[in-house]
Structures are given as C-alpha cells and as structure tokens.
Simulated assay, not measured.
Amino acid sequence: MTSSTTTTTPEPQKPLRADAERNRRRILEAAAEVFGERGLSATLDAVAEHAGVGVGTVYRRFPDKEALVDALFEERIDEVRRIAEEAASIEDGWEALATFMERALELHCHDRALKELVFSTAHGQERVARARERIKPSVDRLFERARASGQLRDDVDVTDLPTLQLMVTAVMEYAHDVSPDIWRRYLTLLLDGLRARHTPLEPGPLSEDQLDGVMARGFHMARG
C-alpha cells in the first residue's frame, strides 16, 4: 500500500502545476492587453473574460488587482533590464546608451498603461524604488561606458534619465493619435543635448493644426 501511494501521488500534480502556470501566463498577457486599452480601472472580471478563464481562476493566481499589477510590473522591469543587458553588448559606448534609451521608450510606446502601472496605485512609489534598484546597475554601466568614450557630457548623471524618459512619454501620451512616432524626434533632440554631435531629426515637425490639437489635449489632461 505504501509503495502504491508513493508512486501515484506525484502523478496528478504535474499537469496541475503546468495548467496553473499556463493560466498564470494567460492571465498576465490578458491583463497587459486589457489594462493597456482601458487603464487600471478595468476589472478582474474583464481580465478573466479576455483570458478565457473563470474569474475564480484569476483570484486563485492573484488574490486582488494590486497583486496582478505587481506581477505585471515585475515583468516589465525584467524586460527593461534585459534591454539594458542587450544594449551593453554593443561595442560603441554611445550607441549602446542611445539604443537602450530608444528601446526602453519603445516599450512605453507599445504599453501605454506602463506609466499608470507605476503612478496610479497605492504602491506606486514602492514599485519605482524597486525598479530603480534592479535596473540601476545595468544602466550605470551604460552611462559610464559612454562617458569613458568621451561622447557623453561630464555633467550628466544617470539620475537624469528617468526625467528625460518622462518628458518623452508625455509626448507619446499627448500626440499618439496625431503622430505616433513624433516622440522619436524629441528623443533625438534630447540625445543631442547629451553630446556635441547633432543628428538629423526624424520624423518631421507637427503642423500647426496638429500642434494645436496636442496642446489642447495636454491642457485638458493636466486639468483632469
């Protein structure tokens, strides 16, 4: 009896673990899409429906929305760190730093809920501190390489980077529907501000009508 019990007990657990992991992945992917489209006001019921699972399955994996947001944010931080590590493999120090900045901002562009994940929940500041601790060593190395190559201004600090990113993500937010890639123009301007050599600006500037629409949207969003 003991032998029979020992050999059969683990067998049903393996598919359960695999199913649980598949459901967790499905829920995270659905949450990324739902929060990206609707913001964090979307409910766990909406996430469950998009994932094609029962809401009870969502609650078994994540006891509340905050836990789901935490898991989603951790995945984004892992992705940013991966981008930094991949950029570090580029031989030229300046190109490595510029590539990291561009690819990290592309992540924001394709996941417009990312800023809300950071700033719109109870533990936003904790998430920012945790993210900085995990990413900073990789980004520090990129800054130091660019500085050592003589291509980065001596008075620029790695702590300037979050503010620069925030500036560009604001352009993404306000101008996305008008000119989705316009943020690249302003990223180029910012990068040129970090070094002496200038780079051609792409894409072209907004028209006056487009600028009026973007400014009006920014005004209303700031008031709201």
Rank of each mutant, 00 (worst) to 15 (best):
I135S: 10
C109D: 13
L97W: 08
D92G: 03
I135H: 06
R60Q: 11
Y59M: 09
T159I: 01
R147S: 12
D154S: 13
E74A: 15
E74M: 07
M101W: 04
V158L: 10
F119Y: 14
L114A: 12
R141I: 05
P162E: 02
E75H: 11
E86P: 04
T163L: 15
E91S: 13
C109W: 06
M172L: 14
G93T: 11
L97K: 09
V139C: 03
E91F: 14
I77R: 11
T99G: 07
L114Q: 08
E86C: 06
E95P: 01
F62E: 00
E95R: 15
I77D: 08
Q151E: 12
R76S: 11
L97A: 07
H110K: 09
R145T: 09
Q151T: 02
Q125W: 04
F73G: 07
D154A: 13
A87W: 05
S120Q: 15
I83Q: 13
A71R: 05
A170S: 09
Q125K: 13
Q151P: 00
A170M: 10
L161A: 07
L114G: 04
A113C: 07
M172N: 07
V156S: 04
D155E: 06
D140K: 05
L166W: 01
E144M: 04
T57G: 03
F62C: 08
G150R: 10
E173D: 14
G52W: 03
T121C: 13
S120N: 15
P162T: 13
G93C: 10
I135L: 15
D160G: 01
F62S: 01
L105M: 12
A122L: 08
D155Y: 02
G93D: 14
M167C: 06
L105Q: 11
M172Y: 04
V168C: 12
E116Y: 03
H108D: 14
D78V: 08
G150N: 09
F62I: 00
V118L: 15
I90G: 06
K136Y: 03
V139Y: 06
I83M: 11
A98I: 07
L114C: 05
D140E: 14
T163K: 02
